[in-house]
Computed example of a mutant assay.
Amino acid sequence: MADTENSPERPRRGRAASARDEVEAAIHDIETKVHDLEAKAREIDARIEARAGRNLTKAIFFGLVLGFSLLFSLIVVKELFMLFAGALVAFTVYELASALRFAGRDIPRVPLVAVSLGMVPAAFYGGAAGLWWAYLAAVGIVSLWRIVETVRPAMRQPSVSLRTDLAAGIFVLSYVPLLAGFAVVMTARDGGQWWVLAYLIVVIAIDTGAYASGILFGKHPMAPRISPKKTWEGFAGSVVAATIAGILLAVLMIGAEWWVGLVLALTLVGVATLGDLTESLIKRDLGIKDISTWLPGHGGFLDRLDSMLPATIAAYVIFSLLG
């Protein structure tokens, strides 16, 4: 019995238990610190989301996914840009048409998406003329579809009025596939893909500059009744960011004079800002915060394209005159 009590196994077991306790305590300490860091990160995200109106982490992730997809489609094979543009157009048309339907405008979503997709290859292979002819055909098809629905009793649904429905359908076609189509027209032309990439980067710089300076310095609302979080300080930041990006892109990427980049930047600042406010007016009229929730951290596709769509036609005009 004495030999058992004095056995070296007991001190060894005691040391092992002590070491295990120390390891467990260290692990527990690490877990506690990780939980604290996670709590602080969530608190910071909540503050940023409350200030900016969106989840920044998710916004950056999905923004990078879209950005790399865009770069691949523009730089590798031009024809791939039709697929990228077609997907964006289809989702955006569907979500805008859905938002309008929920607001009482009875417009056919599936025909709208179908004819909008048809406008993309028409723009790529037929140029601006092909885009316009496809747009007119799309307006005719969607309008005829809606008229036929009103004639057939089985397909009639309560709506504001036929005239309002037709106007809403034409608005969707004009706002999304027609404006986006000019980016496809530019891409199809020699060197046009670099202009498309340049104007998109400038618009991203505009949004980023406005976002950053608005969070840091924003105090004076630009249009409080339309978009309460848009400030003059944010607008100033967008001008600075766009000017720097425009001049650098003109000189280093599209091979133009520096003043061409300045013209592009200042034009896009004005047009993109108006586009952003226009989409805010649309959402305000429909009584919604985001057009949809398909893009985590961004809202809907139109919430990300509101500045880019009107900027497309401005970039196309400058490209046609100075490119």
Rank of each mutant, 00 (worst) to 15 (best):
I244T: 06
A223D: 10
V240P: 01
G246D: 00
T243I: 12
L249Q: 06
W195F: 12
L178K: 07
I204L: 15
W195R: 04
K219Q: 12
G181F: 03
I206C: 02
G181C: 03
Y211T: 02
T187Q: 13
A223S: 13
A198V: 08
A180M: 14
A245N: 06
P228D: 02
M186Q: 11
V240D: 03
T243V: 12
V196F: 06
F182L: 10
V185M: 04
G192R: 03
G191A: 03
A210V: 06
V185L: 08
L178D: 10
T187E: 12
L248M: 13
A183D: 09
L178Q: 01
E233R: 02
T231N: 00
L200K: 12
V185I: 08
M222Q: 10
T231W: 11
L249E: 02
I201Q: 14
A205L: 06
H220V: 14
G209H: 04
V185N: 03
R189W: 15
V203W: 09
T231A: 01
V202F: 11
R189D: 15
I226A: 12
I247P: 09
G218A: 00
A241N: 00
G218K: 01
E233M: 05
K230G: 07
T243C: 04
P224S: 05
T243R: 09
A241C: 08
L249C: 05
A183C: 05
A241D: 07
A236P: 03
I247H: 10
L178Y: 06
L248V: 13
Y175I: 07
D207L: 11
A198P: 05
G214A: 01
V176N: 06
I206D: 05
M186D: 01
Y199R: 08
K229R: 14
L249W: 01
A223L: 07
P177A: 07
S238R: 10
Y211I: 00
G191E: 07
M222T: 05
Y175R: 00
A212P: 12
L178I: 02
V196P: 04
G181T: 07
F235I: 14
P221S: 08
L249I: 14
D190S: 14
R225H: 13
K219I: 07
Y199P: 08
G234H: 06
A242R: 00
A223P: 08
L200W: 15
L249F: 04
L248D: 05
W232M: 11
I206K: 10
W194I: 15
R225E: 15
